[in-house]
């Protein structure tokens, strides 16, 4: 969950400036390589907190209190629907962003003129913090599900759009000559050559977009209090239910992990199908 403002391409490749579209396919940010025993400090900290923390502390309620304070939300049936709303906003937003980003990115990247004409505008929209759009969208679209979606879609589109744009731009011209000389139709060229070649950049974009979409979904909910996990968090904070805030944070974390895990799974499935080749 590195960024809230749409991070640029460099964020995905920490050090090496990866040539878009090509480069090593299976780059893992060390998840598999990190030893599990590294969790010990965190566990020790939580244990200490549990032992030393006072159950009545308004600031640092111990972990056992978190669960106790969150349970009522489960029992009165508010937590699950809230989770559902957040997940729905996230998923719908990400799906729309993927289609929008991929198709626009491919179109823009395919034409030198379009690329130059739209480049600066896209650049400005990319660096514009999504957070600043929350009040704008709320005012224009009202406090609705569409508003939530619009705010999630906008920032989540950029990473996908930009990776697709640069990948399309740097797509080998030979790869585009192949379908022509083999007499493939325009449609076949798109479905058999261009779109498959774009799968990897789209995934690379999703890897950045997915956590972003989740964060933005939570943010909209916290700010506008429209139903969802973020709304519960905001309400708990407003009522000074600190233990409940910690509990909900933990749940948000689990959601974050689930998103990460899903994206990694998707990448593995695609890698297995598409091979690790240069692309």
């Amino acid at each position: 969950m590195s960024a809230m403002a749409t991070p640029d391409k460099t964020s995905t490749a920490a050090t090496a400036p990866a040539t878009p579209g090509r480069g090593p396919g299976r780059r893992r940010n060390g998840h598999s390589g990190t030893p599990v025993r590294g969790l010990l400090p965190l566990i020790a900290l939580l244990g200490l907190w549990q032992l030393a923390g006072s159950p009545d502390s308004p600031y640092y309620p111990p972990p056992s209190e978190w669960f106790a304070a969150t349970r009522p939300l489960v029992e009165n049936g508010t937590l699950l629907p809230a989770l559902g709303w957040s997940a729905l906003t996230f998923l719908l937003g990400l799906i729309i962003a993927t289609f929008l980003g991929a198709s626009l990115g491919i179109l823009v990247g395919a034409s030198r003129v379009a690329d130059r004409a739209l480049g600066p505008g896209l650049e400005f929209l990319r660096v514009l913090p999504a957070a600043s759009l929350v009040p704008v969208a709320a005012l224009i679209l009202g406090y609705t599900m569409e508003m939530k979606l619009a705010i999630v879609v906008l920032p989540a589109t950029w990473p996908i759009l930009l990776t697709c744009r640069s990948a399309r731009r740097s797509l080998s011209p030979v790869l585009l000559d192949v379908p022509r000389t083999l007499g493939l139709s325009r449609k076949e060229r798109l479905t058999k050559v261009v779109l498959p070649a774009m799968t990897r950049p789209v995934l690379l974009g999703i890897r950045v977009s997915a956590p972003l979409a989740l964060i933005i979904a939570l943010l909209v909910e916290i700010v506008t209090r429209i139903n969802g996990l973020g709304a519960l968090l905001g309400a708990a904070q407003a009522n000074f239910e600190s233990a409940q805030v910690y509990g909900l944070l933990l749940i948000a974390g689990v959601l974050g992990y689930a998103v990460n895990w899903l994206v990694t799974l998707l990448e593995d499935v695609v890698s297995a199908r598409m091979g690790t080749a240069t692309g």
Binding site: M1, G38, L42, L249, A252, G253, G256
Partner: peptide
């Protein structure tokens, strides 16, 4: 400690 760092980092910042 790396796994702890990664665990903390993965918590949504806005929360």
């Amino acid at each position: 400690s790396m796994a702890s760092v990664e665990a903390l980092r993965a918590l949504p910042v806005v929360a």
